[in-house]
Amino acid sequence: MVGVTSAGDAVSAAAATATATDPRTPTPASASVTAPPAPRKRRSTFWRHRTLYLMAVPGIVYFLIFKYAPMGGLVIAFQDYLPFLGITGSPWVGFDHFVRFFSEDTFYVLLRNTLMISLGMLVFAFPVPIVLALLLNEVRTRWFKRSIQSVVYLPHFLSWVIVVSIFYVLLTTDGGSINNLIVSWGLDPIPFLTDPDWLRPMYIFQEIWKGAGWGTIVYLAAMTAVDMQLYEASELDGAGRLRQAWHITLPAIRPTIIVMFILAIGDFLELGFEHMFLVMNSLNREVADIFDTYVYTAGIENGQLSYAAAVGLFKGLVGLVLVVFANRLAKRFGEEGVY
């Protein structure tokens, strides 16, 4: 559906263009130092870096075709889109779909559910890769570190379908292993899969299980850049492992953490459709229905394409605002933002 991806795309596109331009950033600066007359020089710097631009082309084309062009479809959010009439033939209705969305009760339910889970993700899931990376960093036996790394990366490569199925087999009260264990202790089985109270913990736990290991990569990479002399010096001063981690490693990877945090904020409403869709059912829908799943149900299952596009567009705009805001905030505190 149009709405599902588009706005998140805007964010990721922004991030990507930022990274794409990174190699360029130093050049205008150095160019302007050496020679002030800009227009001619600019062309020549362009020519000088032509191979870099050439290398950027596939990326740019990718974003144009798969991220920007589909955004054109968002106009159906302002139409009563009927597939057989097409975008050109469908009647325009202005902001009707938005008005309907904001005046319905579902809006608050969706907002609450999305925010609660996003908050949970930030509080519980976001720090886990950092802690894991710190722990891995302390492992000195090379082969052991390597093998642990591979093991924790592995869940990342499983699709949500597999992950959720594994948890289903473990957690179901109709003969799931965890519940069999609980019952064998003489306790009542816990309906993890259907109890609304269990949905959020289960969802976040699954996210951590699947993503934490993979998330350490960025932090581990940042940690390799820390000057070894700092550790040696601190050792002479009598600092232990814990002290070193707190006073050297963590401050050194702070910019990375902040960049990751901004990106996480940008994805605040972008929980992703697939995972939630798979764990959602009639009984936990009241807390599980989020913007992404609602867009799917309203748009694909119930055929209200324009309405769903409007919901998706709203979600995307909020995501964009959040990422801009977080970036500003980071810069204000003297850190480097994502752009």
């Binding site: 559906m1 149009v2 599902v4 991806t5 588009s6 075709i65 798969f66 062009a69 589909p70 955004m71 054109g72 479809g73 699709s159 949500w160 379908v161 459709f273 697939e274 869709f277 798979l278 799917y296 694909i300």
Partner: peptide, 18 residues
């Protein structure tokens, strides 16, 4: 099956728009 549906939606995001 749900997963297949999910995949279909992702695919649709592309086809429906382009």
């Amino acid at each position: 099956v749900k997963g297949a549906a999910a995949a279909a939606v992702t695919a649709l995001a592309l086809t429906a728009c382009s």
